[in-house]
Design a protein around this nucleic acid. Structure first.
Lengths: 147, 147
DNA sequence: AGAAAATAGTTGACCGGGAAAGTAATTTCA
DNA sequence: TGAAATTACTTTCCCGGTCAACTATTTTCT
């Protein structure tokens, strides 16, 4: 009856992945119901928070790779949510600007998202919710390869 | 000079996404260096932990959707890491079985992954690492739509 | 028992993301 | 000054994921 199985190590990246998938799926559905991809929403939020951002700055802020962002922005432009404007000071750079429609949709989704988040926070307990958010923020800021 | 911008709300799903992307990218590279997709590795770990699992149980354990898992397993089979076996008691079900090669590769990646994780834990502080892992586990277990 | 509903998993069409190469503008420096 | 290197972004090709439809098996219900 020897059980020669090794127990799976508890890896942060693994726990993070499971939690992420659950919350992300829910949040994505929540955004989708309001006609927006969650990535698009977070781009819109980023634009609202600080004006005249370049593609690179936005990619950094929303943790997307540039090609992915570039294509997302293509879609957002064709939906009339944002428009591109070549930077005056450096013609290589592109500033992304919110349209009225973009701002409107962003606000809609924000409402739904805040509601949903409140549910999760309640289920988790507000204290632990605050803890985990703080730690996650630290994790996101960690140096690139601490191995 | 009125700044009529609204500040972006602090949403758990968003914080989680940023942290996830960073850690996941690093962990994925770590697995890739040892010739394994990180999802494949976590499937292997799951199999090692509990025998005779069905596709559905595995999908649940690794938080993947069934079609994604099914295709991942196709690849894993063709690499000789696992093999499918129809369940005796219910012919609809499929049990996934580790091969020797699968177990070997799993152990290899586990080593690399534990090392990497130790770095992250150290950077974060062991206390907070334990906290966040516990909370993430709770998050992953949250009911499906608490809105 | 046997038709209808439910369940487990796979398949196909389509879409979004990643790596690497490509383009255009700007900076460096000999 | 102008050729080489760098930077900012886009495009291309491919891979993996999702949704919805499908197949096969089992359960339910009359």
């Amino acid at each position: 009856m020897s059980e020669n199985r090794s127990s799976p190590p508890e890896i942060l990246a693994l726990s993070l992945t499971s939690a992420y998938r659950r919350l992300y799926d829910q949040a994505a559905r929540c955004a989708r119901n309001n006609g927006l991809q969650i990535e698009a929403w977070s781009v819109l939020e980023t634009l609202e928070a600080g004006e005249r951002l370049t593609m690179g700055q936005i990619a950094q802020a929303v943790a997307m790779k540039l090609p992915a962002l570039s294509k997302l922005v293509d879609r957002m432009v064709s939906e009339g949510l944002v428009h591109r404007q070549p930077s005056r000071s450096d013609q290589r750079q592109v500033n992304l600007l919110l349209t009225d429609l973009g701002r409107k949709r962003m606000m809609q989704v924000r409402g739904a998202m805040v509601d949903h988040d409140a549910g999760v926070r309640a289920a988790l307990g507000e204290g632990r919710a605050m803890q985990v958010q703080a730690i996650l923020a630290d994790l996101a800021r960690l140096p690139d390869s601490p191995h």
